[in-house]
């Protein structure tokens, strides 16, 4: 009995949600959600110790530094931050990561990637946005490509994807494009998520089961 009352007093971060509820809504089991909570705690106490993931903490985990901006990390952070309040809460973390589960549906991955690349949220991926992303990638990877090579890559990709030739990629064209070019969604599946309980074993569940 003493155990049960002490487990109830355990402090939870704001935004904590019941693992059973999250498991029911995502690709994860309850055990896996508990393991993700271990990872979440680690990330959310790395700089600002309030139990919420701030952008700097997200960057620190991705790049080992919290300084500097990265177009793609910013985009991912903003999409994870479903409530758009500047932090990633635990439920948002689990729901968003669920899309990256190798077993999650291709359709969810396709939609998420579209939102990611629709930089200005117009409902289309525009040529200028694609160019901006290619330039950002070259910049972060210290790769050098001539302006004409960048144009060639952007043009050839666009010509392939923009089948109705209106100068922008709509969700339907995107769906067709990724079917023909599945490697474009490579970053949307994280093998780590399949054995998350080994990477982040959780002992929390055992005390809660007694309740």
């Amino acid at each position: 009995m003493g155990c049960a009352s002490s487990s109830k007093r355990r402090r939870r971060a704001p935004g904590y949600e019941d693992p059973a509820v999250l498991a029911a809504q995502t690709s994860f089991t309850v055990n896996e959600v508990e393991a993700l909570y271990e990872l979440y705690k680690k990330l959310s106490f790395s700089i600002i110790k309030d139990g919420l993931i701030h952008k700097e903490e997200f960057q620190l985990a991705l790049f080992r530094t919290s300084k500097g901006a990265n177009l793609f990390a910013d985009r991912v952070f903003d999409l994870f931050d479903l409530k758009r309040n500047g932090v990633i809460e635990f439920g948002e973390f689990v729901r968003s990561l669920s899309i990256f589960h190798p077993k999650a549906s291709e359709s969810d991955k396709t939609k998420f990637a579209f939102k990611l690349y629709d930089l200005r949220g117009t409902g289309y991926i525009e040529k200028e946005e694609l160019r901006e992303m290619v330039l950002a990638l070259l910049d972060e990877s210290d790769l050098c490509l001539s302006e004409s090579a960048v144009e060639e890559i952007v043009d050839s990709t666009f010509n392939q994807a923009d089948t109705n030739g209106d100068g922008r990629i709509d969700p339907r064209e995107w769906e067709e494009f990724v079917k023909k070019n599945p490697a474009s969604l490579r970053n949307m599946s994280l093998p780590y998520l399949q054995d998350i309980t080994t990477a982040f074993p959780s002992f929390v569940m055992h005390s809660e089961v007694e309740d």
Partner: peptide, 25 residues
């Protein structure tokens, strides 16, 4: 001449999109 990698495939190699890093200790 080898076929060009499509731009989205290239972008998918960005470290900012490699969330696997979150799981590395």
């Amino acid at each position: 001449r080898p076929a060009l990698m499509n731009a989205f495939e290239l972008i998918s190699t960005s470290q900012g999109l490699n969330l696997g890093t979150l799981f590395e200790k």
